[in-house]
């Protein structure tokens, strides 16, 4: 355990923990756009920057992204100093130039007193904030079907060569994890389309309702040793089967007892 000071309060934290986790646990609101618990911290959005110093540093201050900075004994952290707020405002100003119509950005910027960017907005803006959560989640799931492509200002999320990604199983994790709902998909009947790839959804034997894609189920059967027949029916039918079984046992045991 180490002890450190955050906004004047002394707190204890586990060694190896990152600052942001400790800050959030204290209920302090530090914005972070590229943070997702399922994946390793990234350090791309820079909004979780905090000011750190130590008594032994002779007044020298450092600005670090709290999502990546491991806690240290005797660290003194300020989450909303003037300089940090100015920095966040500056970064949100840049975000607004890139994503002027994204509600998430607009709201966050408004929190820091910005309604519109002071820069020239980029031509053809979209809602992608390039937080890379989607690609990192896809990596964490073990598929790596999509990736960040190009670099610098032309960076974007895309499947290989902008074509239907061969490794995608259509689990929708990327779309679900996207903080701005930029990644779109379409479910029509038992057909799913994402990243221009068509998938067939398994349907429940009993209700005919679609569940997950055949590719995803195959992956789970093969790599996670889930019995194939688990995917035969949907969750509601599973519950009904369970209730039915338990009903039979009950009736049997009650009759046995009566005998």
């Amino acid at each position: 355990m180490v002890s450190l000071t955050i906004n004047g309060k002394v707190v204890r934290a586990e060694e190896g923990e990152y600052l942001l986790a400790v800050i959030r646990r204290m209920g302090i609101d530090v914005p972070a756009l590229c943070q997702h618990e399922a994946v390793e911290p990234y350090g791309g959005c820079r909004l979780c920057m905090v000011e750190i110093t130590k008594d032994s540093w002779d007044g020298w201050k450092k600005y670090v992204t709290s999502c990546l900075y491991p806690v240290e004994q005797d660290l003194i952290v300020t989450t909303h100093s003037d300089k940090v707020n100015d920095l966040r405002r500056g970064i949100l100003d840049l975000f607004l130039a890139r994503n002027p119509e994204t509600p998430l950005i607009q709201k966050l910027a408004a929190d820091y007193g910005l309604t519109r960017t002071s820069y020239e907005a980029i031509p053809e803006p979209n809602d992608c904030i390039l937080c890379s959560i989607c690609t990192r989640v896809c990596d964490a799931m073990g598929f790596s079907a999509i990736s960040m492509v190009n670099r610098g200002h032309g960076k974007e999320v895309a499947p290989p060569l902008h074509q239907a990604p061969p490794d995608c199983v259509g689990c929708l994790a990327c779309a679900q994890a996207c903080p701005t709902n930029y990644i779109t998909y379409e479910d029509v009947g038992n057909r799913r389309t994402i990243w221009n790839k068509q998938f067939e959804l398994l349907v429940c034997d009993k209700t005919g309702r679609p569940t997950i894609t055949k590719e995803f189920a195959d992956y789970l059967i093969k790599n996670r040793e889930i019995p194939e027949d688990y995917f035969r029916i949907d969750d509601a039918s599973h519950r009904e089967e369970l209730a039915d079984k338990m009903g039979r046992i009950t009736r049997w045991s009650v009759t046995e007892e009566a005998k």
């Binding site: 990234y42 350090g43 791309g44 959005c45 820079r46 500056g90 970064i91 840049l94 975000f95 130039a97 890139r98 820069y119 020239e120 980029i122 390039l130 890379s132 960040m148 190009n150 670099r151 610098g152 200002h153 032309g154 960076k155």
Partner: peptide, 21 residues
């Protein structure tokens, strides 16, 4: 630098671009 920035973090990706503009 704008074309060689990797684009991972926003200050470099967007900041240098705006500076260039």
């Amino acid at each position: 630098l704008v074309s060689e920035s990797c684009g991972k973090c926003i200050p470099c990706r967007e900041g240098l671009y705006q500076l260039y503009k």
